[in-house]
């Protein structure tokens, strides 16, 4: 799997965490669009949609955490300080791991951001 048990980091492992964010975002948007368009009017109760969003958000956060664990391993658990600028296999791996870890953090926060409207908005107005 791309985010788990990969021996070597590469560009795909780097792109995986924000891709998880993108899929989460798309699912939330599509689910809400369909719920409101097909629900019949602005007063549609969105309780079930809000549970759906929770059900999408928790796995997305979990996947990002898994990706983050792998990224931390690729980074060498921080034993080597940045800038990881040597022309060696090790520094390349550490750099990719570190950058992926940062992207995991950004993606994690962004997934929470995107899910937050579901906490307060209860209908389709």
């Amino acid at each position: 799997m791309l985010i788990h048990n990969r021996r070597h980091a590469n560009l795909w492992t780097l792109l995986a965490p924000p891709a998880i964010w993108a899929v989460h975002f798309l699912l939330c948007y599509v689910a809400a669009a369909i719920a409101c368009a097909k629900g019949g009017g602005p007063w549609v109760d969105l309780t079930s949609l809000r549970w759906v969003i929770l059900g999408i958000t928790l796995p997305a956060l979990g996947l990002i955490l898994v990706a983050g664990r792998q990224a931390r391993r690729h980074w060498g658990f921080g034993t080597d300080d940045p800038p990881h600028d040597q022309a060696t296999d090790e520094d390349r791996q550490h750099f990719l791991g570190y950058a992926t870890l940062l992207l995991c953090a950004l993606s994690f926060v962004s997934v929470i951001f995107v899910a937050m409207p579901a906490i307060t908005i209860a209908d389709c107005r």
């Binding site: 780097l14 792109l15 924000p18 891709a19 964010w21 993108a22 975002f25 939330c28 948007y29 809400a32 669009a33 409101c36 602005p42 969105l46 949609l49 950058a99 992207l103 950004l106 993606s107 962004s110 995107v114 937050m116 409207p117 579901a118 908005i121 389709c124 107005r125």
Partner: peptide, 28 residues
């Protein structure tokens, strides 16, 4: 660079806030 590249695809409706889309969509 990578983060902006991805997130920038989740912003398009902020040009359409006044088209009457449901508030929850605007929220995302």
């Amino acid at each position: 660079a990578v983060g902006t590249g991805f997130l920038s695809f989740g912003l398009w409706v902020h040009h359409m806030f006044t088209t009457g889309l449901p508030a929850i969509s605007l929220g995302f």
